[in-house]
Write a protein that binds this DNA or RNA. Structure first.
Lengths: 141, 141
DNA sequence: ATAGGGTGATCAACTTCTCTGACCGCTGTC
DNA sequence: GACAGCGGTCAGAGAAGTTGATCACCCTAT
């Protein structure tokens, strides 16, 4: 039995651990996976809380809780939404922008290792399959 | 940027949701993802708590907590380990055995859908790549 | 122009999962 | 047999998520 669930879970956990280890080493030691999943979905032009919650598939309350923490740590900032006084726009702040290259480097490093293990064609096939799978597993994008 | 982390996360979450929806519908509505991850690693001949904790990469305490819940709900049972009086063997119990086919059916159904979307060769390539990746992301197996 | 339903966000209380640290009993070696 | 070490549990805490209620603001249909 191929055990699809575990097969997807293991590499995801590995990658996540590696990225957070890299972040911690670079001094971004106060960010958690849950915060990162929200942070990750922030649009360059700013996002509303409800948008983030929907994209990350969590409740607005949880999203608000995580954005609070990110804001307190200086990774994001909240401002008013000029088009709707009820809403507030969440934007990536200075410290958040500084953390992004660290993540990207860690991901690239893991991808290099995996490519070395699998060989270039199999790695390409993996990325291709996962990308196409996103079409039916990421509702709304 | 392909965003490897999200690509692995999305299908895993989708599969997990589907399996737990199927379990709930079949009357196994008191089992949680964390419990399932431990349950899943139980050897047919029984496993020790410490083994399960290592395999699932959680602390002994967390494993104990989850096994407590699984035991109370009738999915597993604890017995003595004849070879070591300190240890206790955790085995799958009646209700646990009954839940397994429900999970397998749900996984098979998702796999069918994904195969239909990707095409047979791409799905095979995905499983192949993930299986090989396990060699370097599942330490100890 | 305004009354009322829908949307964006927050507050409060709770559950689940995970951790660290301390501890106890059994094993096996020297 | 003494004792270092392993298997497991107890206690306490924090992180991440939930539901339910509430409030302010928006927009459309009378």
């Amino acid at each position: 039995m191929p055990d699809l669930g575990l097969l997807l879970y293991l590499p995801h956990r590995e990658l996540e651990n590696r990225v957070f280890a890299a972040l911690a080493e670079a001094g971004f030691d106060d960010v958690t996976p849950a915060q990162a999943r929200v942070f990750h979905r922030i649009d360059p032009d700013g996002s509303r809380l409800t948008e983030l919650a929907e994209a990350a598939r969590i409740t607005k309350q949880t999203a608000g809780f995580l954005v609070d923490q990110l804001e307190r740590a200086g990774y994001v900032e909240r401002g008013p939404d000029p088009t709707d006084a009820r809403a507030r726009l969440i934007r990536v702040a200075e410290r958040g922008r500084a953390a992004v290259p660290v993540c990207l480097a860690a991901i690239a490093e893991v991808q290099r290792e995996w490519t070395a293990h699998l060989g270039r064609p199999r790695m390409a096939a993996l990325l291709d399959a996962l990308t196409r799978l996103r079409e039916i597993t990421d509702p709304g994008r």
